[in-house]
Design a protein around this nucleic acid. Sequence first.
DNA 1: AGAAATTTTGACCAGTTGGAAAAATGTTAG
DNA 2: CTAACATTTTTCCAACTGGTCAAAATTTCT
Lengths: 239, 239
Amino acid sequence: MPLNKVKSAEVAATPKRQHKADAKAAAHPHAKPRPLTRIQREKQDIILEAALEVFSVHGFRGATIDQIAEVAGMSKPNLLYYFPRKEEIHRRLMAALLETWLAPLQEMNADGDPFPEIRSYIRRKLEMARDYPRESRLFANEMLQGAPRIIEMIEVDLKNLVDEKAKVLLGWMDQGKLARTDPYHLIFSIWATTQHYADFDVQVRAVLGPSRGGEGRFEDAARYLEHLFLYGLTPRPRP
Amino acid sequence: MPLNKVKSAEVAATPKRQHKADAKAAAHPHAKPRPLTRIQREKQDIILEAALEVFSVHGFRGATIDQIAEVAGMSKPNLLYYFPRKEEIHRRLMAALLETWLAPLQEMNADGDPFPEIRSYIRRKLEMARDYPRESRLFANEMLQGAPRIIEMIEVDLKNLVDEKAKVLLGWMDQGKLARTDPYHLIFSIWATTQHYADFDVQVRAVLGPSRGGEGRFEDAARYLEHLFLYGLTPRPRP
DNA sequence: AGAAATTTTGACCAGTTGGAAAAATGTTAG
DNA sequence: CTAACATTTTTCCAACTGGTCAAAATTTCT
């Protein structure tokens, strides 16, 4: 018996009519799902894009289907024709997000040298914060709520990946190529410092002020982080 | 004319009856506000505590008065007797939060030596993440939404404080006591790395696993961060 | 073109939400 | 004790929410 989804055993107190698609799928569990039409793919993309916009700001509970529909430029029932329920939209978004999210770390290569590898990992994460801030906020929102909808993926896929990369880091430390520190917290600190520029963007810009809060802030951040992770704050004698 | 609150000039499309307290205050702008009774102070505290619990998880929009009332153990109308509207509760929470939030940075002392000062700043922030995770999440939630309700405080109070401390850091750098880097991003990185342990707590615990995800994780984090900020990741020859 | 399938709309619904009003119940100073 | 005040409960409401449904409009396929 699978350990998850135990909830389905609950007695359905309210008989809750099912959505057409659900009903059809239940009737013919082996019916091949009709391939998506062009319109279906296009509209689903529009909806997901709009949902990203809304969910990333207000979180799951705070976002409404009406809002998403409005941003997507369609009526609520029309939106619900493509996604039978709010949760479904969010689920799709999160599934896509997790893949994007893991990719940069996956690229960290054990055969490379630690500093180029770590440096370009930081760069990639910082670029993601710059180019996909909504995705970053969506993820943060889910985390703040205790990740109820993705905890399993975090506990399995993400954990496995980090375990693997922590070993890589340990390997480098054993070879004396990297200071001996906690590889897990090292990874956390890279996540934290880079995602900060997406999640706390308002604060960063407000504090930097108009003169330094422009696009250049990402380059400044990259330079600073590079220095921090390489040398820390101890002053070094001028060459 | 004050620059904020311009919205009151909007034509009130719906005549929206005002709350009793509001009406009273408007009628006698100089009437001295009756001092709070014991019960009032106690109940307000209970409500704020409950609101912190709920707002920190679901954000402003996602939280409901009913939820807060239930956590506070009272009826919704009863709660509304103490705080005329949802926004008011949130405002009070944020005002109190900001003070708590700025305190640790304020303690950073220009006359001290940079490393002890920075180290203990990191410690204090990490302790806050450990001891007040809900406050941290409340703050993060507000940031994710673009800080609509506290942007002014961020732009003024927080910015001024950071400007001041950035000067302190620059002073240390000029004295050669601290590596020359961007003081603003230095402060950001301290915020990011420490608050991460509150805001992304689920993730941290999931990735560390049961063996290392216990309370000890904060000590591990402190050790790691100390090393990171002091020396970075460059390996140093053994003494 | 015309039938079949897909997409869109408008009307609708039950439950939730923020909030108001008033009546009922304490509490306290004189 | 009792009048004045503070607190709590009950009832209520309009707007919003997630979601359904049948019919109409449009697109696709033959």
